[in-house]
């Protein structure tokens, strides 16, 4: 049997290799063509900040941003080192002297801003999921609850993050008062705006997923007289998992878009602020740096979606499902 199947597998891998090569070459060719078209058309447009940067200029700016990041880091390290030395000297003179380390207050680099944005979007998305999934499950199980909550969802769903922002800002400023805040106010504002905008797709998809559980399986749970918890945990949730993940993927995509807009408008730290600062800066490098940021936003969005997909593959019971 093994001998018989050997030539077939060899042939099979050959075909697979060819397929894989094709699968790789088509997007690469398209990408090269796109960069070429970008380079050509960019050089045609003259702006107040000079020519529109092409891919070569943008990659140079990316290099600059990396260098700036390391410079800033070494500055910070030097700053802390000086403090440690000074404190050591002070203590040598007078063992009872009060010493403390002051935080470095240099400007956040491009990569600091990316990290801030990522933390914010994850936090906002997490809160949205914690709210949306249970509400989605309840409205999928109870027609009455769904009828009650549906108009509210439909009204809040299309609201732009820019419209939420002033309300969230004012409410957070009034409510979140603390002398020693664990989170900065701007972080809470950005994250809550993300939450408000991105919980709706998860909520609706969860409700639809839960409501469309196979009726026979519900009958099985009735015959077994399963408790509500077991019913939800063992029957409803597993069958709704694909729909819940569809919602989560939509949600994190929306959340990421919303966050950039919110950071830009509210001047909260993050990638959005970076873009806005460069826009206001208006140096000859600014356009290129903004383009680096735009590409980073796109790539991060793609990675976030891919992470959700991987998580779905890991959690979902249906390992054969084709996920796109």
């Amino acid at each position: 049997m093994a001998l018989l199947s050997l030539p077939f597998t060899q042939q099979g891998t050959k075909i697979n290799f060819q397929d894989g090569f094709k699968q790789l070459m088509i997007p690469i060719t398209a990408m090269v063509l796109f960069l070429f078209a970008w380079e050509l058309s960019a050089s045609q447009i003259k702006t107040s900040l000079g020519l529109v940067p092409g891919p070569i200029e943008v990659s140079k700016q990316f290099g600059n941003l990396v260098t700036e990041h390391y410079e800033e880091r070494s500055k910070a390290d030097a700053f802390y080192e000086r403090q440690v030395k000074r404190n050591a000297k002070k203590l040598a003179k007078n063992p009872n002297a009060k010493v403390k380390i002051r935080n470095y207050t240099g400007k956040p680099t491009f990569f600091d801003q990316i990290l801030t944005s990522l933390v914010t979007v994850f936090f906002g998305f997490l809160v949205a999921t914690i709210i949306a999934v249970p509400i989605g499950i309840i409205s999928g199980l109870s027609q009455n609850f769904y009828t009650a909550i549906n108009p509210i969802i439909q009204i809040f769903k299309p609201i732009s993050p820019l419209a939420w922002l002033p309300i969230v800002t004012i409410i957070v400023s009034a409510v979140y008062v603390s002398n020693d805040p664990t989170f900065s106010k701007s972080f809470i504002i950005s994250a809550l705006t993300v939450t408000l905008c991105c919980m709706w797709p998860t909520m609706i998809n969860t409700a639809v997923g839960v409501a469309s559980v196979d009726k026979d399986l519900i009958n099985v749970s009735k015959v077994l007289q399963l408790s509500s918890f077991t019913k939800v945990w063992k029957i409803v949730l597993p069958s709704a998992i694909p729909m819940i993940f569809t919602g989560l993927r939509l949600s994190i995509g929306i959340g990421w878009m919303v966050l950039i807009a919110a950071e830009m408008l509210a001047q909260n730290p993050g990638l959005g602020k970076f873009v806005w600062d460069e826009f206001q800066n208006g140096s000859s490098n600014s356009l290129g740096r903004i383009m680096v940021a735009v590409l980073a936003i796109g790539i991060i969005g793609f990675v976030l979606d891919y992470l959700m997909l991987t998580l779905q593959r890991y959690i979902s019971w249906d390992k054969n499902a084709v996920l796109r």
């Binding site: 196979d214 026979d216 399986l217 009958n219 099985v220 009735k222 015959v223 077994l224 007289q225 063992k234 029957i235 597993p238 069958s239 019971w317 249906d318």
Partner: peptide, 20 residues
């Protein structure tokens, strides 16, 4: 009064949980 395990049902399309 209502369904219960003392009257077990075998459904036409097996009705097994596909994830178990």
């Amino acid at each position: 009064d209502g369904p219960g395990p003392e009257r077990a049902v075998v459904f036409q399309n097996h009705s097994l949980m596909p994830w178990l």
